[in-house]
Each structure stands twice: as structure tokens, then as C-alpha cells.
């Protein structure tokens, strides 16, 4: 009987997480289309449902119904494994994100570490996809992806160390609790900026979307994917956007803290605001060049993050 309960519980959690991921991705795609439309003086989708609300559902169904094209001469194992590997860490990461004080699935005391450990796996899927596709453009995209992730993982981690030094815990709930009065963005404004820029690069969002730059290397690593395999990459990208924004909210913007409204509402408001910022940036700036991206990562963001860390340490010691 106990066994059955545990199984039921796991099943329920899986259903909740996968359900949320799907709905979230569908909503974000709709949101991105609407935001871009407003920026570009268009309407965006208007036909299916109220203001095109169900357009993305229709698109998703179409995508799932599409033929799976497998190119010749591919390396089968990495090629077929890559889309699954792209999806898998994002699902696991969702387990530890607290949406409210008691609204979470897992409460790990090393939540931050857990998230970074799994989100670093994302680049593996990019590389496997590019390597397995037997396509020079895909390979270029994959190499770019790896170089970029190396350059931006480090400032990303360095920037959050300041926060962790202040609150002294790796527990996500603990970090939010420590921001009851003052959000950490006020203590660590520089770290927040570095974190935000690095997450843009980490999630391959414009202006750092080099692994999939369509005007240069034609969608890069996922050029050769179609149908549901492509959908998996797509889903993981949008989920990744949610995850990094949620992390920024937890670490810097006080998580679910806020007056009047219920906790999850505050949390989601902050998250979607950050996502909106990402979209705004995407539809304003051109794409940066690969060597300039590396320069920005290694020569500017990492030293800045180190300085920030040093100053935080000194201030805390005083």
C-alpha cells in the first residue's frame, strides 16, 4: 500500500511538472509573438481563440503531427539522444523551484547547486545535436554553443556567490526568507546585471543566440531536426528561460515576497516580467559577433564578477 502511495505521488508530481512545463512553453510562445508584434507595430496571432490564445496549441499539434526526417550519414546515438537530453534536465530542475513558501516539490538544502549542475547539462545536448547531424552549419553551431557556455557559466556562478555569502545558505527557500525586508538586488546590483547578461547567453537568447543564428548558420545545431524532436529543443529553450528567470527572482528579487497579492502570483509576476525583458531585448538589438561575445565574457564579465565578490567579502568582514 505504501509503495502504491509513493508511486501515486511520483506520478502526480511528474504530471504537475510536465503539465506546467507544457502550458508555460505554450504561453511563452504566445507571449513572445504578442510582445514582438506590439514592438513591431503588428497584431500578432488573432484568429484562434481570444487574441490568438490557442494559436500555439494549434501550432503544437501541427508540430507533433509532422514527419520525422532523419538525414543520411548521421551519428545515430547522439543525434537521437540530444532532444531527450535537452528536455530531461529542465524537468528535474523544476522539482526544486519554490513558487511559494510551501509550494514546492523538493526542498533541498543545496538547491542552488542542484540547479546549476543540471542546467550545465544543456550544452551537452547542443553539442550532441550538432555533432550527430552531419552538417557543417550544425557543427559550427555546436562549437559555438560549447565555447559560449564555457565563457558564461563562470560569471554566472561568480555573480551568485555574493548572494550566497550574504545569506549563508544554498537552500532556495532560505535565500528567499533572507530577503524578507530588502531584496538582494539592492545589495548586489552589479551581480544582478552580470547574472542577467550571463543568463541571456546561457539560454541562447538574442543578442547572444549564436548557436542558432539563423542568418549566419541557419538555425545551427537544430537545423536537421523536425517534428517532435525539434519541438523538444523548442520546449526546453522556453522552459530554460522560465528557470533562469525564476532563479533570478529567487536570488535577487525576493522570490514570492510582496504585499497584498498571494505568494505564487508575486513570484510568477516577477518571473514573467524578467522574461518580458528578455523578449524586449531580443527585438531591439542586433546579434553580437562570436569573438565579441567571448571578449565580453572572459575579459569583462568575469573580472567584474570577481571584483564584486571581493568587495562583498570585504564589506561582510567589516
Amino acid at each position: 500500500m505504501d509503495m502504491l502511495l509513493v508511486m501515486l505521488k511520483i506520478g502526480m508530481y511528474a504530471a504537475i511538472v510536465i503539465g506546467f512545463i507544457t502550458v508555460n512553453a505554450l504561453f511563452l510562445v504566445w507571449m513572445e509573438r504578442k510582445v514582438s508584434a506590439k514592438i513591431q507595430l503588428r497584431h500578432g496571432p488573432m484568429e484562434v481563440g481570444w487574441h490568438g490564445t490557442f494559436q500555439t496549441f494549434a501550432d503544437a499539434i501541427k508540430l507533433f503531427g509532422k514527419e520525422l526526417i532523419t538525414p543520411v550519414n548521421i551519428d545515430k546515438v547522439p543525434y537521437l539522444l540530444a532532444p531527450m537530453l535537452a528536455m530531461f534536465p529542465t524537468i528535474l530542475i523544476f522539482l526544486v523551484i519554490p513558487i511559494g513558501e510551501n509550494l514546492h516539490i523538493l526542498d533541498l538544502n543545496v538547491g542552488v547547486l542542484y540547479i546549476f549542475a543540471f542546467s550545465a547539462l544543456g550544452v551537452l545536448s547542443i553539442f550532441m545535436a550538432g555533432y550527430g547531424s552531419n552538417n557543417k552549419y550544425s557543427m559550427l553551431g555546436a562549437v559555438r554553443g560549447v565555447a559560449q557556455s564555457l565563457a558564461y557559466e563562470i560569471p554566472l556562478l561568480l555573480s551568485i556567490l555574493g548572494v550566497i555569502m550574504i545569506c549563508g545558505t544554498l537552500n532556495l527557500k532560505g535565500i528567499v526568507m533572507a530577503q524578507d525586508n530588502v531584496w538582494f538586488v539592492l545589495y548586489q546590483p552589479l551581480a544582478f546585471v552580470i547574472f542577467f547578461i550571463s543568463t541571456l547567453a546561457e539560454t541562447n537568447r538574442a543578442p547572444f543566440d549564436l548557436p542558432e543564428a539563423e542568418s549566419e548558420i541557419i538555425a545551427g545545431f537544430h537545423t536537421e531536426y523536425s517534428g517532435i524532436r525539434f519541438a523538444m529543443f523548442f520546449l526546453s529553450e522556453y522552459t530554460h528561460m522560465f528557470i533562469v528567470s525564476a532563479l533570478a527572482t529567487i536570488l535577487f528579487l525576493g522570490g514570492w515576497n510582496g504585499p497584498f497579492l498571494p505568494e505564487p502570483v508575486w513570484f510568477l509576476l516577477k518571473v514573467y516580467f524578467l522574461i518580458f525583458m528578455m523578449m524586449w531585448i531580443r527585438f531591439t538589438f542586433p546579434r553580437i559577433r562570436i569573438d565579441q561575445l567571448m571578449t565580453l565574457g572572459w575579459k569583462i564579465l568575469i573580472p567584474l564578477a570577481l571584483v564584486n565578490l571581493l568587495v562583498t567579502g570585504i564589506v561582510l568582514k567589516l
Binding site: L41, D209, F283, T284, F285, R287
Partner: peptide, 16 residues
């Protein structure tokens, strides 16, 4: 030109 550089929005402005 801007589309090639990765900026999508000016494309729609100029086409309008």
C-alpha cells in the same frame, strides 16, 4: 541588412 545582423524589428518598420 539589419535582419542579417540579427535585428528583426527594423525589417518590419522599413517594410511598412
Amino acid at each position: 541588412f539589419l535582419l542579417d545582423l540579427g535585428a528583426f524589428t527594423p525589417f518590419l518598420y522599413t517594410f511598412a
